[in-house]
């Protein structure tokens, strides 16, 4: 068991971590907003944790708090990300569809270039020697795991309640939702801020997990990867991001024995999965079950 976790622990925790990042994109999407801003907040959260963990300035905090400095990092990263997502979100959420996606890509790029050039973020090399919360990579499951469980529970509750209904109404038809007395701006901002905060917290947890943090963590590629988790998993279920991340984040590792050609096959799988699972993994599972029970898509609605 120990051997197995030594080898695959990192990968398993990575899946959970990536699933959380996929979730961060799922909230805006469930309110009909295609936001790709998550890597920006993820990068911000990671830098906050890395700086608090290593900078001379914060040495008194670390001495005073010991391991308790980690939760503090998460909180600060969460709050900072929430504030930044408010600042970015209010103007950006007036945009729709691909326009919002592009504006958020621009945001991610700007964060990346700025962090590449500041001295506090360590320039191109980044920040290294980040203090560890756990010895083994597998140990990090004890923070990412509960966060994922809490996030899923939170999302489930959210979707059952008034806010979830408002999100869905806006997603289906924003004008109609407004006519029904729902304030779209408010709910869209809420969805965006929840996503941004989650990504920031995940970033803060990831900096020690990866041992180092640099400008390569929050990129355009990451934006698309997180989107792919949700799309391949299924955009209409809270399980989508988890299933999508479980497939896509492990794929390059499953294909590792193929060496040189593993990324070629990885790309082919992306194409094939998008074509043959148009409703995502969740949709496909529901259809499988539906075939037995003659029931519709449980988490869905019309597509």
């Amino acid at each position: 068991m120990a051997e197995f976790l030594n080898n695959y622990g990192f990968l398993i925790v990575t899946v959970v971590q990536q699933a959380l990042l996929g979730m961060s994109l799922y909230y805006p999407l469930s309110a009909g907003q295609l936001s790709l801003a998550s890597p920006g907040f993820y990068a911000l959260g990671g830098y906050i944790a890395a700086i608090i963990g290593t900078a001379e300035l914060f040495a008194p905090w670390r001495d005073l708090l010991g391991k308790a400095v980690f939760p503090l990092e998460w909180i600060i990263a969460g709050v900072a990300s929430a504030l930044l997502s408010l600042v970015i979100g209010l103007p950006a959420l007036r945009l729709r569809g691909i326009y919002l996606a592009l504006a958020t890509i621009a945001f991610v790029q700007i964060v990346r270039v700025i962090s590449l050039n500041l001295s506090i973020t360590g320039g191109a090399i980044g920040i290294f020697g980040i203090p560890q919360l756990f010895e083994s990579r597998w140990g990090y499951i004890w923070i990412f795991g509960p966060l994922l469980a809490a996030t899923l529970l939170f999302t489930w509750r959210l979707e059952q309640g008034r806010i979830g209904r408002a999100f869905r109404a806006i997603r289906e038809d924003e004008l109609a939702a407004e006519a029904m007395g729902i304030n779209p701006t408010r709910y869209k901002a809420q969805a965006f801020i929840i996503g941004g905060t989650l990504a920031g917290v995940v970033g803060a947890m990831s900096a020690p997990f990866l041992n180092t943090w640099n400008a390569r963590q929050g990129t355009f590629d990451a934006s698309i990867a997180y989107l792919a988790y949700v799309l391949i998993g299924g955009t209409r279920s809270l399980w989508g991001a988890l299933l999508g991340a479980a497939l896509l984040a492990t794929l390059p590792e499953i294909l590792r024995p193929l060496n040189d050609s593993r990324l070629i096959i990885n790309g082919m799988v992306l194409v094939i999965v998008s074509i043959y699972l148009p409703q995502g993994i969740v949709g496909a599972l529901a259809r499988l079950r539906g075939a037995g029970k003659k029931k519709g898509v449980p988490a869905g609605g019309k597509t």
Binding site: T235, I264, N266, G267, M268, V269, L270, S274, T303
Partner: peptide
């Protein structure tokens, strides 16, 4: 197949991955 239109982003990304690595 009437998939989510956004999936085109993923499938085109997959093609890019194949091309570059090929």
């Amino acid at each position: 197949r009437g998939g989510d239109a956004l999936l085109a982003l993923v499938s085109s990304l997959g093609v890019a991955l194949v091309t570059v690595n090929a």
